[in-house]
Design a protein around this nucleic acid. Structure first.
Lengths: 339, 339
DNA sequence: CTGTTAGCGCATTCAT
DNA sequence: ATGAATGCGCTAACAG
């Protein structure tokens, strides 16, 4: 049978007012220790479960944050949610999940769901295919706290957490240079995604810092797929001036590179260096193991929860949006260790 | 500014009763088409967003299901959630996520959170360390629909979806036999987890079916870690009667086996066969690629949503609990393909 | 320190 | 076909 014990049941049982029970339960300072004790005892005995719905309706706060992700089927987002969710629990917040499946229409639906559920705050990693951002603007206009993580948009003036792709790419490229590779190529991703254009920037900056002339032939435009890696590697190896190392925009791309090199019996890392980006799980276990750049997923989740938590607390006050940028970590494994 | 439009705002605007607006909005059959049209037009114009909290409080239904997982930081659970969440959206349900982090105490907290939130149903994958199951019993007693997935418990008489570990293990072992390996060993996981004991059962059954004598020396008790795989392999290779193939309880265990074999320069698959269980992402990309058994994660999520959906619909009626068992799929890759 | 009163926004009886 | 009244369970303002 469903638990139907309410605050007034407890009140009747003790011959006091429901309001007193409410206050006792929430440790209101003006309630005597003795009544608190009595109330809590009865609550315990009757197995009272506070009705959060009623409380939310009355107080206007749900203690729920909505998290909108492209898909739960990527470990990346799972890790971020791990970070968000653990911190949320600690602070008494529940986490509502919605997947956009990379569709703008579903993304809008997700936002509507969150608004309908009257969540206290919204966390979003923008869908790849979103081109119209009005749904985010309207969240902002409704004065609902919102923050982006990983997939952000600078035009909207919404707070965000992401990693420093520029410096990650810089580190990756630099590590290749320092390992002794002489000519470093880059397989890039779709440039309308900021993370990827930043990685090209970082790549170029590292070359410049070490006085290596940038060569446009050493950039191959691909995407984050194994196939792009294979094609990129093939392209570079047919060049007159072949590079001897590749910084790939993403681990799967790097994986494609490794596969292609293996088929051509080019020795990694001695004859050719490879580094990826993402620190996907498999990189540690392939042969040769893949050097890469770690994206601090769990920390990103924690950071973005802190952000929304602040936004919720300071609601009403005018605050400028802020960008938090996490510094990625270089992970050097076999694929870039020239002996 | 926050959206404060309510049904009475719409009612005033049109000079009708709030109740009529409520009915019009929910397409009540006794409302004239013309009023419905007018009401919806005004709702649209004012950007009315129904308050789900108020609706829930009134109706006693939240259209939320709580999903309790050990951790979001494993792709396995992410995939299941993917399946659950997509179907939930389709059916108008929201998904609340809680992580137990494999702790019984957090698991209890999660259940309390869900009860407090008055979710319409609860989906759980039990924590590894849970030994006392009273919190699940009390959910059942409160008549809140609940179902387990993957990590289930048969004693509680709660509906569940999991895969057929027995037949998965059978298939894995059988494929090794059919590939021509003569002596097949098994690295097992903690036996108090049913999935793992079932896998031993499937292993033994396959041996029996092919008239291979079971040898207790060919079972190594480990866990699902790379280290267990290495230790298991080491143990087997020191045996007088060495096996020539290993069925590992999990992909990471199998990975450990592969690493150990590689160090000892034992050729896989020609001199030694290996198969895992789980179909983790990395298996496809290591060398040699890992044969394994796929667990149908997304389908599991969909299936368990269907289960809870039924349970919610038939609430009140007495129904027996049911177990749905998904058939896993054998994935044959290089590590078990003897030429 | 505690009780009284009121109402959050909606859905549902019972009228008409 | 629509309106009026009621209350889901809780919290907050105001009394006292």
């Amino acid at each position: 049978m469903k638990n139907k014990i309410t605050i007034s049941d407890i009140a009747k049982e003790l011959g006091i007012a429901p309001a007193t029970v409410s206050r006792a339960l929430s440790n209101h300072p003006e309630i005597s220790a003795s009544t608190k004790k009595k109330v809590k005892a009865v609550a315990e005995r009757l197995d009272y479960m506070p009705n959060k719905i009623a409380s939310s309706l009355r107080s206007g706060k749900t203690k729920v944050i909505g998290v909108l992700i492209p898909t739960a089927e990527h470990l990346f987002f799972g890790s971020v949610i791990h970070g968000i969710s653990n911190l949320a629990s600690q602070h008494g917040y529940d986490v509502l999940i919605y997947q956009s499946n990379e569709s703008e229409a579903f993304e809008k639906k997700g936002i509507d769901t969150f608004i309908g559920a009257r969540v206290d705050g919204i966390l979003v990693s923008i869908s790849k295919n979103t081109t119209n951002f009005s749904h985010f603007k309207s969240v902002k206009e409704k004065n609902i706290p919102i923050a982006f993580f990983d997939r952000t948009n600078d035009d909207l003036e919404i707070s965000s957490v992401c990693i420093d792709d520029y410096s990650g790419a810089f580190m990756a490229t630099e590590s290749l240079i320092k390992s002794g590779y002489k000519s470093i190529a880059h397989i890039s991703g779709p440039q309308h995604i900021k993370a990827f254009s930043e990685r090209i920037r970082g790549y170029k900056a590292a070359l410049e810092q070490y006085n290596i002339l940038f060569d446009a032939n050493l950039i191959y435009s691909g995407d984050i797929s194994i196939e792009a890696g294979r094609k990129g590697a093939t392209y570079f190896l047919n060049l007159e001036n072949k590079p001897d190392a590749i910084f790939a925009v993403e681990d799967f791309t790097a994986l494609g590179v490794l596969k292609e090199l293996k088929e051509r019996e080019i020795q990694v890392p001695d004859a050719f260096g490879v580094i990826g980006f993402c620190n996907d799980l498999f990189g540690e276990h392939i042969t040769p193991s893949l050097s890469t750049v770690d994206q601090k997923t769990v920390q990103m989740g924690e950071e973005v929860f802190h952000l929304i938590y602040e936004l919720i607390s300071k609601k009403g006050e005018k605050t400028n949006h802020q960008k938090r940028i996490l510094t990625p970590t270089l992970i050097t494994r076999e694929s870039s260790k020239k002996s």
